[in-house]
Simulated scan of single mutants.
Amino acid sequence: MTELPHTRTRMVHWLSTAVALAAVVGASSFIQPADASAQATLSVKAAGPAPDPEAARFPVDCGKGPGVKVDVVDHGSADFDGDGRSETVASVRCHSGTGTPPNALYVLAAAADPEAPPRVVATMLRTKERMTVQDLKVRGTTVSAKLLGYSSPSVPSCCPDKQRRVKWEWKDGKFALEAAPVPGAPESV
């Protein structure tokens, strides 16, 4: 049986993927949508339970047409800023009958108006980064996940061939990203 070209991994593939994934993950911690900020906006005056991700409006472009919606794949809640009100971290993606569309990862806070939907106050990962989020965990002030990605655009979207564990820690009024070493990559000295 002939081995498919995209299934052969070489050290150069791992290293280039590690660099690309680190750049994307690092950039995602600094780039925010115009209407989102992880700074002082996490504190709101409304009390109550953690925001319901099913009620939120996420800034994800799933195209136009009937039935096109955003699915909440996973979520967890914590009081990151210590104000006595929980925020919700939600992993979302465009609804699809087949395949695995990429995920986005957002932090929600309750709106000041209890009748209004929760607000997106931070973006940890965008769908355009073409990653899938697995093993999302929220503990204390830490959000952790495993990100699955691709070594090149020629890798089929069904079959991510790279993975990396990451965590975001709430520090000094914002989320600080820490990425674990890429599996199989040489350790740095």
Score class of each variant (00 low, 15 high):
Tyr150Val: 08
Pro5Trp: 10
Arg57Gln: 14
Ala109Pro: 03
Pro33Val: 06
Glu3Trp: 10
Arg93Ser: 08
Lys146Arg: 14
Gly63Tyr: 12
Lys128Thr: 10
Lys167Glu: 09
His95Cys: 06
Thr132Ala: 11
Asp161Met: 06
Ala185Glu: 07
Ala22Pro: 03
Gly26His: 05
Pro66Gly: 12
Leu148Gln: 12
Val89Trp: 05
Leu4Arg: 12
Ala47Thr: 11
Gln163Leu: 15
Arg10Met: 13
His75Ala: 13
Ala111Pro: 09
Glu129Pro: 00
Ala104Pro: 02
Pro51Asp: 01
Asp135Phe: 11
Leu136Cys: 04
Pro186Glu: 10
Asp81Cys: 03
Glu169Cys: 01
Met124Tyr: 04
Gly65Cys: 03
Asp79Leu: 06
Val70Pro: 04
Pro153Gly: 11
Pro33Glu: 03
Pro101Arg: 01
Met124Arg: 08
Pro117Glu: 05
Gln32Val: 00
Lys146Val: 15
Ala176Trp: 08
Thr142Gly: 05
Thr2Cys: 08
Thr127Gln: 11
Pro49Lys: 11
Ala55Gly: 03
Ala78Ile: 03
Val25Gln: 07
Phe30Gln: 15
Ala47Tyr: 13
Ala90Ile: 06
Ser29Val: 00
Pro5Thr: 11
Asp135Ala: 14
Pro53Lys: 00
Pro49Val: 05
Pro49Thr: 09
Ser144Leu: 07
His6Arg: 10
Val120Lys: 00
Gly184His: 02
Thr17Gly: 13
Thr132Glu: 13
Ser188Gln: 12
Ala185Ile: 01
Met1Gly: 13
Val12Arg: 15
Ala78Arg: 06
Thr9Leu: 15
Phe175His: 09
Glu3Val: 12
Glu87Lys: 00
Lys64Ile: 14
Lys167Asn: 10
Met131Gly: 02
Thr123Phe: 00
Pro117Trp: 02
Pro156Asp: 13
Lys45Leu: 10
Lys45Val: 12
Val70Ala: 03
Asp113Val: 04
Ser151Cys: 09
Leu125Ser: 02
Val133His: 02
Arg57Trp: 03
Glu129Thr: 15
Val24His: 10
Arg119Glu: 01
Ala27Lys: 07
Leu136Met: 05
Tyr106His: 08
Val72Gly: 02
Pro117Cys: 08
Pro102Phe: 04
Leu136Trp: 02
Ser91Val: 00
Met1Arg: 07
Lys171Met: 09
Glu54Ser: 14
Asp61Lys: 10
Ala116Arg: 07
Ile31Ser: 09
Cys62Gly: 06
Ala185Tyr: 05
Leu42Val: 06
Pro160Ile: 00
Ala122Met: 11
Thr123Tyr: 00
Asp172Met: 08
Arg57Ala: 09
Leu147Val: 05
Ala50Gly: 04
Gly26Arg: 11
Cys158Ser: 12
Leu125Phe: 02
